[in-house]
Structure formats: C-alpha cells, structure tokens
Simulated scan of single mutants.
Amino acid sequence: MATTTSVEPRSSAVPGSRPRASAPVRFGRWCKELGWRHLVGVVTIVFCVLPLLYVLSASLNPSGTLTGSNDLFSTISGANYGALWSKGFGDWARNSIIVAVVTSIGTVLMGAAAAYAFSRYRFRGRRGTLTGLLLVQMFPQLLAVVAIFLLLINLKDVFPLLSTNSLPGLIAVYLGGALGVNTFLLYGFFNTVPRELDEAARIDGATHAQIFWTIIMPLVTPILVVVGLLSFISTYGEFIIAKTVLTSSSKWTLAIGLYTWASDERNAPWGLFAAGAVLAAIPIVLLTLFLQKYIVSGLVSGAVKG
C-alpha cells in the first residue's frame, strides 16, 4: 500500500535574512531616526530667516516705520540706503573697521607671543601667572568701565594719543581686556605642536624668533584665524566701552551711531536703522564665510592636549 507524503512549500527567504519591512514601517523608522532632525532643521531655519527678511523689508520701505513693513517687500526703494551717507554712517563704518581690524591683529600677535612663552619656556611664576590670567577673566570688563574712563583721563596729559575720545585709546582698552582669554585659547593649541620641531630647528642654528615666525606660526594658523575673527566680531559690535570712551559723533562706531537712531522709540528712523543694520552685518558675514574652513579645526584641535 503506497503512502503519500505531503510536501511543504519551500520558503523563498534566504536563511539568516530578515523579512523585508513594509513601506509604512520603513517610513516610520526613517521619521524616528532622521525625520525629526530635518523637521528641527527646517523650523530653526525659518526661525532665523524670518527676522532677517523683516529687517531687509524694513530697510527697503521708505515710510520709515516698522508697522508699515508687516507686509514683506510690499514697497521696495533704495532711499534709506542713499540717505545713510549724509547721516554720518560712512564715518561710523570706517571707525568700526579700523578699531576691529587693528584690535584683531594686535590680539593675535600679543596672544600668540604670550601663549608661546607659556607653552615652550619654564620660568619662575609661570603657573601663578596663568592662574592670575584665569582669575582676572572671571570678572567682566564691564566692571572696570569707570576705572578705564578715569585712567584715560589721567593719561591725557602724559600720552595724548591714549585718551578719551580717541580711537587708539579705545583700541588699547580692547587689547588689554582680550589678552587673558585668548592666551589660554592659544596656549592649548600651542601645546599640540611637538617640541621636537623646536629642538631640530635649534640644532640647525635657528633663533627663537625664527622658530616662532617660520615654524610655529604657520602650524597654528587655524587658531590664529579663529582668535582674530572672534576679536573682530566682539569689538565690531561692542557698545558699552565704546560709548564711554568716545564722546564726539565723528569718532563714534556703528554700534553707537545706530543706537542713537533707535533710542527714541516714537520718532526713531527705523528705515535708516534697518538699512544701517543690513550694511553693518555684511563684513561679519563675509569674514565668517571666507574663514569658515578654519573655525572648526581651530576650535577643536586645541582641546586635544592642554
């Protein structure tokens, strides 16, 4: 008697392989892992771009009011931009550029020299000086505004160039306030440069100045660019100390000049203020875009070894 055996259908799945997820499951997994990040990014972009569009629309509105700019780009005119130069905007922009550029260059040179000394040399009082710089930076420079003002007044008889209502005096104040924090930032980066390079150059007969300028400085270019950019941005838009030191309108910076326009809430020329704010932001944006390749490497590399 013949026996019949039932043959079960073979599964087409490869042994060890997972069953293919359906489309809704894949979409839900994508939303859980990556989709929410795209949503947060879109919301952040909208949150950042809308105020910029509003200011740009207000700068192109010749009516000079913010309430009339609720409808974005309903009126487009360059009258506000043309009127800036007759209001002293050109002098303010020139003063801000001079102060920011000179301060950033001086900050980089002073900070690099101090950081190189602390990183490469061992001398008495080294640790105490580093600790002192750190403690001084715990107190904001704003607390010393009165002392700075009195100091500049007393320096007027000895060094007329470093006095109140002078751009060199303001630059000197900025350089003194930025030395500590930038020294610490550069010090961590200088420690990542091998000392063997210094020793090899010294064996070849190089002096300390040659080692500093031809070997160390090119290797730490990213952090120098970062320090210079941060110094430029901070001094370009600084208001409190600049308002205390500079008294005449011809010596004002952009922060002081734009503040005088917006100080009167009822009669403020908001169109001029918006146009000046748009033009004042251009140097910062261009510098950031041009130097962005140095920013990440300059801020991160110094944290590897300290």
Rank of each mutant, 00 (worst) to 15 (best):
A2R: 12
R20W: 11
P24M: 09
P24Q: 11
R29A: 14
W30S: 07
W30Y: 14
C31L: 15
H38C: 06
H38A: 09
L39K: 01
V49F: 05
L50V: 14
L53W: 06
Y54P: 01
L56K: 01
S59Q: 02
G64E: 05
G68W: 01
T75Q: 11
S77I: 02
A79E: 10
G82H: 05
A93F: 15
A93P: 05
V102S: 01
L109W: 02
G111M: 07
A112E: 07
A113Q: 12
A114F: 06
R122C: 11
F123E: 07
L133K: 03
L134D: 04
V136C: 09
P140C: 06
L142V: 14
F149R: 15
I153E: 15
L155P: 08
V158T: 14
P160T: 04
S166C: 03
P168Q: 03
G177P: 06
G188Y: 05
F190K: 05
F190P: 01
N191R: 15
E196D: 13
E199K: 05
I203R: 06
I203W: 03
G205Q: 04
A206D: 02
H208S: 14
Q210T: 07
I211H: 03
W213S: 11
W213I: 11
T214I: 10
P222A: 03
V226N: 01
V226T: 08
V227C: 11
I233V: 15
S234V: 08
E238A: 09
I241L: 15
L246A: 00
K251D: 10
W252T: 02
A255T: 04
T260A: 08
S263W: 00
D264F: 01
N267S: 15
A268W: 01
W270D: 00
A280G: 04
P283Y: 01
I284D: 08
I284M: 13
I284G: 06
L289V: 13
L289W: 14
I295M: 13
S297F: 09
G302D: 05
G302W: 04
V304T: 08
V304R: 07
